[in-house]
Design a protein around this nucleic acid. Structure first.
Length: 556
DNA sequence: CCCCCCCC
């Protein structure tokens, strides 16, 4: 039995689609009170509905305990039963804070500052969220949450160097970039996690394809800019993420920068690839999953790829990962991204608990194309509809055309669907039945036996039309689900089994790889289409292919 | 004023 000593909302994080509530929870057993406690997201409703309130007596049915930064333990409640609600009871005992030096104080409540006057310097401090390009006389008091390397550029418009910092205060965040002379002036002054007064920068519209920071604007340092260190203000947040749930990444435009957090479900080995500009670079693909039940591929590059340890299913958070649309949606860590393994943030603890308790056994769906799909007959390649065969004059050139069809077999011509062939391994020539012995003209030999070969003419359809297709041995056997030898034996001894086998092959849908080529026969040119590969339908894979096609059309 | 960030 546990008592909720206190429960209150201490932060609401809004993304464009979701609101995340973070509850400050203190648990008491009557003797000790413990405050590093979180509520799994699925239990939020128990609080908002009023069922779970302060001083409620609860039974903890399921929880995980995560050790963070080696000393701090964070309890994530995954399931609970309310035994007595808070209004019907009172605090039991006089619980003392539980101190095994693993407990740290929760973050203080955030009070957004509003144009407050800083007494020491008599300056007006503006909240970051109030900055616009139309207003110049401001000072912000801000913590640096990240700082890039100095980078050089060179293009048709000139060359130079730059670096950028991400800045945060109680109201919001903004990116600031320094170019050329300002790089010298400010690079060493600005340190990550430290607090500064900054004033007189220019403000312009931010491009969302290059930052996940939640601000329509970004700042540029000018030669007027003033940067002045400030004593640390505890109330200034240290990090800020705008996480997009993995299940929502499919709704993100390609090229966007987003923040993501997930459990590493799998990690590939490092591979070296050649770039188009003929450089070698190392990469490693990993799969991230979250409690949306969706999986996304994240590609790491260079040292991030080489040094990554995906064992033990770590939680990975990326600030500013690029959304790419190669085969569904996937993510790429880019130069400006920050990659964090097992970060001490509430979202990571919740996911750790979710994965260990249920996620690891849950059926998960990837929003990224599996590597196996790309290049497989079911995904890549030259896709056609049956009406395209004549509509696009396929097979009319000197070289045969190869393409994929998704089609259904509706008729199998039973006449001459197999023949007696030369038994020699690489000879498939039709033999002359001499009544007990079989002559092959090609091999110029007579054999005591023969082998059956398939040459099936079948009619296939899709939504656009129908066409005749020839299925030789291997594709014919795959279609009939038996060997030519078996079919021949049934034809001789078990007519109904033979008929049944052929009928069972009707109205089945396949992915077909087709070869189309004009052939002349008796002075007449006819288009011959034959099946060179037959793969069972994979509706999930085909749906992904169609969705990919729709995405591409939307881009036009 | 960068904004390249790689490959299938």
């Amino acid at each position: 039995m546990m008592i909720f000593l206190q429960i209150r909302l201490f932060a609401t994080v809004k993304t464009h689609q979701h609101r995340f509530f973070k509850w400050l929870i203190v648990l008491s057993d009557g003797i000790h009170a413990y405050s590093s406690v979180m509520l799994a997201t699925q239990l939020n409703q128990r609080v908002t509905s009023g069922e779970l309130d302060a001083k409620a007596i609860i039974k903890l049915n399921n929880y995980t305990c995560n050790i963070v930064q080696e000393t701090r333990k964070v309890l994530v409640i995954l399931d609970l039963t309310v035994l007595t609600c808070g209004s019907e009871t009172d605090i039991i005992g006089q619980p003392k804070p539980y101190n095994d030096q693993s407990v740290t104080n929760p973050r203080p409540t955030i009070h957004p500052q509003q144009n407050l006057v800083d007494k020491s310097e008599n300056r007006i401090v503006f909240p970051i969220s109030s900055l616009t390009p139309y207003q110049n006389r401001w000072t912000i008091r801000t913590r640096v949450t990240s700082k890039s390397e100095i980078r050089k550029w060179s293009n048709s418009r000139g060359e130079g160097k730059l670096f950028s910092v991400d800045l945060i205060d109680e109201s919001g965040e903004i990116r600031a970039t320094a170019f050329r002379d300002q790089v010298e002036k400010f690079y060493d002054v600005l340190e990550v996690n430290k607090v500064y007064y900054i004033s007189r920068c220019s403000i312009k519209t931010a491009n969302k394809n290059f930052t996940s920071i939640k601000n329509d604007y970004e700042m540029t340092f000018t030669n007027e800019t003033a940067v002045e260190p400030c004593d640390d203000i505890a109330s200034l947040p240290k990090v800020s993420f705008n996480f997009v749930r993995i299940g929502d990444i499919e709704n993100q435009p390609a090229e966007r920068m987003i923040d993501v957090v997930g459990v590493v479900k799998s990690a590939d080995d490092v591979v070296t690839i050649n770039t188009k500009s003929n450089r070698q670079v190392n990469k490693r693909d990993i799969e991230l999953v979250d409690d949306s039940g969706k999986v996304v591929r994240l590609t790491l590059w260079g040292t991030n790829a080489e040094e990554f340890d995906g064992s033990q299913f770590p939680v990975v958070a990326v600030r500013g990962a690029r959304v790419t649309e190669f085969g569904g949606r996937s993510l790429s860590v880019v130069g400006s991204s920050q990659l964090m393994t097992n970060p001490d943030i509430p979202e990571a603890h919740i996911l750790r608990g979710w994965f260990d308790v249920q996620g690891k056994d849950q059926e998960l769906v990837s929003i990224s194309t599996k590597r196996g799909d790309i290049g497989s007959p079911g995904f890549s390649g030259n896709w056609k509809n049956i009406s395209d065969i004549h509509g696009e004059n396929l097979g009319q050139q000197e070289k045969a055309d190869y393409f994929n069809l998704k089609a259904t077999i509706i008729y199998i011509r039973k006449e001459n669907l197999m023949y007696k062939a030369c038994p020699k391994e690489d000879c498939n020539k039709k033999v002359i039945d001499q009544g007990g012995s079989y002559r092959c003209e090609k091999c110029n030999q007579t054999f005591p036996d023969f082998k059956y070969r398939l040459m099936i003419s079948a009619s296939i359809v899709d939504s656009t039309g129908s066409n005749w297709l020839t299925f030789f041995q291997e594709t014919g056997e795959a279609m009939l689900k038996c060997t030519a030898q078996q079919l021949g034996a049934w034809k001789e001894n078990d007519e109904s089994k033979y008929e049944h086998t052929i009928n069972e092959a009707l109205f089945q849908s396949y992915i077909l790889k087709v070869r189309a080529k004009m052939e002349s026969f008796n002075d007449e040119n006819r288009l011959k289409c034959s099946c060179v590969n037959l793969t069972p339908m994979d509706y999930v894979q085909q749906s992904r292919r169609l969705l990919e096609g729709i995405r591409r059309m939307q881009m036009v």
